[in-house]
Amino acid sequence: MNKGIKASSDDIWKNRVDKVNAELFTLTYGSVVAQLVRDFKNDYQKVNQQLEKMGYNIGIRLVEDFLAKTGTGRCQSFKDTAEVVSKVGFKVFLNVTPQVTNWTSDGKTFSLILDENPLAEFVELPDDERAKKELWYSNVLTGVLKGALEMVQLEVDVNFVSDVLRGDDRTELRLQLIRFLKDEMPAGED
């Protein structure tokens, strides 16, 4: 099954996805973050929150496009979901496949290790001490994952635990399954 996923997502990436110049993409995201930092006057906690919110709004839309493009069916388990997020989701939209590791024994929490992060190319965090401790530069990704998974009835908690931009040796996202949602109204609809 894994081979099938990989081959078809390679194919989708090659033939069915519109590409954009990498520098344009990186700089666009970079100027969004830099502008938020200016707008919030270096309050990095708020920047993180805002990025997550923006990501959430991307995620709840993007998942429709994702399902239409890939025709992915329902996942049998959260382990399947992890594979699909990494090998199809990240592959199709960012052309990277993060490693899925560090499962907890209850199978509800895992890590995505991003060997390459297309969002953070060229970036060096401001050297004002706090940025390296507080800012999660690529925090939009946590929102995207949260939003997208929520639309397929998975409530998850997503957080960065390390980032090479902060001087850590790898970029790691932690996903925790909170619960399966029953058919409920999506948040914010009322």
Partner: peptide, 19 residues
């Protein structure tokens, strides 16, 4: 050029990056 592409760097700022 790579320095300028860093979104947190503004033209004419001193370059403080150790890298």
């Amino acid at each position: 050029v790579k320095t300028v592409l860093n979104p947190f760097y503004n033209v004419n700022d001193p370059i403080t990056s150790a890298v």
